[in-house]
Design a protein around this nucleic acid. Structure first.
Lengths: 216, 216
DNA sequence: AACAAATCAGTAAAAAAATATTGATATATT
DNA sequence: AATATATCAATATTTTTTTACTGATTTGTT
């Protein structure tokens, strides 16, 4: 709607964290909160919190009392689009894909998983949490017929690029990619990568540094 | 070992992507590769590739021919510590936790999942992919006895902070946190967050911008 | 009603990261 | 052997992101 103020990807990543915290605080019966309080709880600076909140929340906080939690929660949820539901499909129903088909939390984010797709004949026709697993050749039809925008891609790395091509030609607009490779898709296709190997690389590196420090 | 050159977290996240690509290229029988080639394939700039590779690889590339792929793969794997195995435990054997216990790919990264832990009585004693699920009160003992450094935390958000306290007091050094909240742990504990809500927020935002652009 | 404390918004500065530029060097081609 | 081209390393610039600062504002307290 508004979307005038520009927001960085880093900032976007922080809003869900604020939201979770605010909801937990609200559940404790607290009705207002200040930027410094949030900063202390989430271990960041109050300036960052204030800047982030200024972008999503039209009504500013008041000195001494801070911001109304309910309003703030609503503002963040609206900004993140949690109130409009988007349909998605899971492509590749391995362990991770199945976990996503079963995961209840997506509805909280306005994400609705419709169905799964897999190559494996033994999986096809089965239902996971009420959602059917279809064969890959049914995918294109379902995407265009139901106007599905988002694909959750949980196929093995070596299949990911072929599958993503199929998704794109079927009219998918965004791919949430869990394969640890670069997807070679047209630039107007939105790709968001969740690379566990990358995340683990960061963890291992920090851990090694810590251990080295302890041993010296 | 060396670890002299400083590397940013962003860079660290890129190495696993380079590695996957290099391995796939090597499997095609190619023996050497240049920074511009990698950049083109992975859709980034050659300067970035070169800078990243300079950090992990002692021997520089040669003009015209580039770098030896095998050496490069080895250098990255060593840098990321894929050749030394670290033990880990999965805490919270829900859908995601179970997927991690079953995931074969971790061994590739030098990560070895020993066991799982859960509160749910019905899960305790069961085995997932040969690894046993223990009750939470066995956790502390196992961590200290086997000197486990890494915990993969896949419990619900509202339990995450309590569990992380237990992990810390048991001597865990690093937590790979999949709960979408900030863990309140001592600052010498390594925490690496994988927040799917954050990732989805970025995806949704990009998708909304794309759709708005298309409709105007 | 005046004052102090806490918080705010907006701007400025610093730090970090990505990108561009420059000149050197090795390889293939003429 | 000379030349052109691709690639390199190192440095400089730009952009992005974070952090710090300044002065204004609201609320509770004396």
């Amino acid at each position: 709607m508004e979307e005038i103020k520009s927001v960085s990807m880093k900032q976007l990543e922080r809003y869900p964290v604020y939201l979770k915290y605010l909801i937990s605080i609200k559940d404790q019966g607290i009705t207002s909160i200040s930027a410094p309080m949030i900063a202390k709880a989430l271990d960041c600076t109050e300036e960052q919190v204030r800047k982030d909140l200024q972008i999503v929340s039209p009504d500013s906080g008041k000195p001494k009392s801070g911001r109304d939690i309910k309003t703030l929660i609503n503002d963040i949820e609206n900004f993140l689009g949690y109130n409009d539901v988007s349909d998605a499909i899971v492509v590749g129903v391995g362990h991770l894909g199945e976990a996503f088909m079963r995961y209840k939390g997506f509805s909280e984010f306005g994400l609705n998983v419709l169905a799964g797709f897999d190559l494996d004949e033994t999986k096809i026709g089965k239902k996971v949490d009420g959602k059917e697993i279809f064969s890959m050749d049914k995918m294109s039809n379902l995407i265009s017929r139901l106007k599905v925008n988002i694909a959750i891609l949980t196929v093995p790395s070596d299949a990911a690029n072929a599958v993503s091509k199929l998704l794109v030609s079927s009219g998918i607009k965004a791919i949430w990619n869990f394969a640890p490779i670069h997807l070679d898709v047209p630039e107007d296709i939105v790709v968001e990568n969740v690379n566990l190997a990358s995340s683990l690389a960061v963890l291992s590196h920090k851990l090694n540094k810590k251990i080295l420090k302890e041993n010296k």
